[in-house]
Amino acid sequence: MRHHLVLRVVSKLLIPFIILYGLYVQFHGDFSPGGGFQAGVIVAAAIILYALIFGTERAKQVFKPQALMVLAPVGVMIFALVGYYAMAMGGAYLDYDWLAGDDTTGQHIGIITVEFGVGLTVTAVMTLIFLAYAGRTHEIDDDDW
């Protein structure tokens, strides 16, 4: 689809906004619908859009698979480590009350951190999965459809 100028320009404009929206969903999940998972999917969608328009090879240069392969496990680890940290502080596993001096703050910190971990993993895994599919074949041409 590289020759569709309109598409390229529009998406170039859109992609930053999609990612921004993803970040909003990520960190505003406490207040409105959304959270790590939805945010992760949105950001991944932005990356996938980029890959579709500009080609997987170029996408891989921007979003390096090696980096994604680090981010995916790190997201899970962030979540799990919050649990361990609470445990080390004296609470039960994942007991956010122990993350800060006061329970409510602790809960907020906990929720935001784990949601971040979820978002990281989802973004990375979704992108990786897409790249794996895409890496399996030649570039997708219009004629394919």
């Binding site: 207040f31 979540f79 409510t104 929720i111």
Partner: peptide, 25 residues
């Protein structure tokens, strides 16, 4: 206790946070 507006998020990330860890896994 948690003092956030989105009840779903509260349950998802705290009350049933362990499910969500599983989900991430």
């Amino acid at each position: 206790d948690i003092q956030i507006p989105n009840i779903v998020t509260a349950i998802l990330a705290s009350y049933r946070g362990f499910d969500t860890l599983g989900e991430t896994a």
